[in-house]
């Protein structure tokens, strides 16, 4: 185990997979010579050269489509979105083509492609750059979607995603790139897609989250224990599609309360699906209605102090949890 950043963990995953499989290459805007806008690929071009690290022009529909075509031919492209929000200009390629080709060919082909990059708000770059499209992507059968919260998960899930034979949308966060955690050094350290992780054991309440909200949930759980003696369990979904329903249900059956937290918007967000699942499979175990916290339901605001408020912070999670126990904050 080594204590490394989320950014370093991703970089290690790329190095290992590039060395392991000659068909793996990384393409995107400024990923090679410039070392990546967020330095996630820093040093890799020096090490692996032009063939494996490819600087593409600002032309997302062109190079995502190229990635799909190359994947059909057996390559394993890892396509970086400088911001995940930029995938919208390539929506027909990324979503319509990537999700449908295997199906429409009756299984004659598959698309082993990773589209990755930061998908988060909270950095004061305005609404167009702050999208969290995991709910949109997860709505398309044929696509997979993962949202790791920690360095270890980022590495294990990235390696699995690159080795996966289906298109995987891998959503990172610029606010997590500098976060450190213990990461196994085993070159075959893989975390399966579709496996949630209980990041904190608890008995009184299940806080179910993904991405950066997991860190907020952990901070909230600490506060709840310290100040109110409420023992919250934090379930990190890690993977949105496939989804680990069993871990969710097991946790809710244990704690009898579920609070769903995400930085996505509320309408048709991930929490909608998870909430449906809980009422469907754990209805009789619930001691309170399922509660949801999401980003405040407006386009991402620029103004720095207000954007902080727009996303679910730890103190708002604490308040919502207390509400579920009829305690006034």
């Amino acid at each position: 185990m080594a204590l490394i950043t989320y950014r370093q963990a991703l970089k290690d995953a790329f190095s290992e997979e590039i060395e392991r499989d000659e068909n793996v290459f990384i393409m995107g805007e400024e990923v090679a010579q410039y070392n990546g806008a967020y330095k996630v690929t820093e040093g890799l071009w020096d090490k692996y050269g032009d063939k494996r690290l490819v600087d593409a022009p600002i032309s997302e529909a062109g190079f995502i489509g190229l990635g799909i075509g190359a994947a059909m031919m057996g390559l394993r492209p890892v396509i970086e979105m400088m911001f995940f929000s930029f995938v919208y200009v390539a929506w027909d390629q990324a979503v319509n083509n990537a999700s449908s080709l295997r199906y429409m060919s009756g299984g004659l082909m598959n698309v082993p492609l990773v589209i990755r990059g930061p998908a988060n708000g909270g950095t004061n770059v305005g609404a167009t750059h702050s999208h969290t499209p995991e709910n949109l992507v997860a709505n398309f059968p044929g696509l997979k979607c993962v949202v790791p919260a920690t360095a270890a998960d980022a590495k294990g899930l990235m390696k699995s995603s690159i080795r996966d034979n289906d298109p995987v949308f891998f959503m990172e966060s610029t606010l997590l790139y500098g976060e450190e955690s213990e990461v196994p050094e085993d070159p075959d350290f893989l975390i399966p897609l579709g496996k949630a992780d209980v990041k904190r054991e608890g008995t009184d309440l299940s806080i179910i989250a993904h991405g950066r909200s997991v860190l907020m949930a952990l901070a909230a759980a600490k506060e709840l224990k310290k100040k109110h003696n409420i023992d919250a369990e934090v379930v990190d979904l890690r993977s949105i599609r496939p989804l680990d329903e069993e871990t969710i249900i097991k946790s809710v059956k244990k704690t009898n309360r579920a609070l769903l937290v995400e930085e996505n918007k509320p309408y048709c967000g991930i929490g909608s699906q998870v909430s449906h699942l809980i009422q469907r499979r754990a209805f009789d175990y619930l001691d309170a209605p399922v509660h949801r916290l999401s980003a405040v339901d407006a386009p991402a605001i620029y103004s720095p102090p207000l954007e902080k408020v727009q996303l679910p912070e730890a103190k708002v999670i604490v308040r919502e949890a207390l509400d579920m126990f009829n305690i006034k904050a």
């Binding site: 489509g65 990635g67 075509g69």
Partner: peptide
Amino acid sequence: GQTPLGLGIAYALKY
């Protein structure tokens, strides 16, 4: 929509 896919096929051949 197929025009970038064709490009990817050509890219793979060259690769």
